[in-house]
Design a binder for these strands. Structure first.
Lengths: 227, 227
DNA sequence: GCTCGAAGTATTGTAAACAATAATTGTTGA
DNA sequence: TCAACAATTATTGTTTACAATACTTCGAGC
């Protein structure tokens, strides 16, 4: 956070985040340091630094003397993840209502993201849609101009993606762009109560659409994930 | 987070957190790896791991090829820290109201913390009071049984302590135990609206009591901080 | 006395080596 | 065929060494 110059392990963190959001890295997959050393070109110690940070955020799981694994959220953890997001993002929305009211918020970028979400939905490009949907939530947080809020939310996004890849029905519209649209409307309407209700309902719908009955299965290979 | 067995760098993180809360480590202080190597007994690489994690959370600042420093929040950052806490802890309080209503929450420990706060206040033990006040907020979060919420809040507590040691008047009652008392009452009254208002007011008072006009001065020594 | 610059020192960034632990494979016996 | 145990391999934990960068000190010139 807020290093003046990028450090090498940032690459590791970013690439793994990205791989998770693109569903190239599945829940439970084992990641060994030496394999990724070859993948990245960095030495093992740099990979480790990245791993440590991802373990700290909960995205990777690490038991002593064992390889780290991509997190595989249980039902309970998934509910906790969304409970935490609800708290943080309700705060985000309330800040944005305030900022929009004070003419300190430009929504054009966010508007166009929702439009793009609709386009992807209509053309059934589901992989790109889930990805963009994650970006939508992150962009909302970034619009608050509060790095602490962003850092709090950041790890919860890939964790949500992991939960989704375990429990979400690929057919269901899991994180609905229509509700994203409503969120934006609520911000524009300068109505804090409506806005916080909208985001709460949105997350409730997300969790409700998950199917926790599925058998959790873990894949173990991860070749060519990062290309 | 959620490592099955403790790792060595946990010690580093914990000790530095503790030192900040006890105001043994002041904002802006430089921390070199080799000096702490002697202090801890661990080798430099272990210290580094701890530093990396603390940098990630914003508690330490790290510019490339320079020693890490204890964060020294600016006025803007301080406001952001409290804005973030407001979001997260409003969520915390709402969860606790719900839990208390469902008889899933035992408030005896928290009640006794507030009593102890009152005692420390009356006997003017201010150092211990600020420390306990931090613990109060952390304990509230932990009572939610949501590790993601706790991890989100955790770094913001030492950051608040750092902000306080820069901007808080030692005489003013900065994080009022009376308002903590009111928070508990609000939880017990099963009134979400009242509870979220109480916590919002509490944080507004915290920020209002800060004096941002002070000259920020940075100390550079840190011998015998960790005893 | 002051400023600027260069050499030397101290500290961090990275990689590589060794030690400790876990995972795997192979073997033996029933 | 299977289970239990031993030997081997692979992987992580930690330390150490070297390279790159930043900081400090000292001296020359003004």
């Amino acid at each position: 956070m807020s290093t003046t110059l990028r450090t090498s392990s940032d690459d590791v963190v970013e690439v793994i985040f990205e791989a998770i959001l693109k569903k190239r890295l599945n829940p439970g997959v084992k990641l060994s340091e030496i394999s990724l050393q070859e993948e990245f070109g960095y030495s093992r110690s740099v990979i480790r630094q990245g791993f440590d940070r991802l373990v700290d955020s909960g995205v990777l799981i690490h038991k002593k003397n064992q390889s780290v694994r991509v997190a595989c959220p249980t039902e309970l953890e998934t509910r906790q993840i969304y409970e935490a997001r609800k708290a943080i993002e309700t705060g985000v929305i309330l800040i944005l209502v305030e900022k929009y009211h004070n003419k300190q918020l430009d929504l054009t970028e966010i508007d166009s993201m929702v439009s793009e979400e609709k386009r992807l939905h209509d053309s059934a490009k589901l992989a790109k849609l889930t990805r963009l949907s994650c970006d939508f939530h992150l962009t909302l947080a970034e619009s608050c101009d509060n790095k602490y809020l962003v850092e709090s939310l950041k790890p919860l996004i890939p964790l949500s993606a992991l939960a989704a890849s375990v429990y979400a029905d690929p057919e269901s519209n899991f994180c609905s762009f229509a509700e994203h649209q409503e969120l934006i409307e609520a911000i524009k309407s300068n109505n804090p109560k409506k806005a916080s209700e909208a985001i709460n309902i949105h997350f409730d719908h997300c969790v409700q659409s998950l199917n926790f009955g599925v058998q959790v299965k873990t894949k173990n290979s991860y070749s060519h994930i990062f290309n």
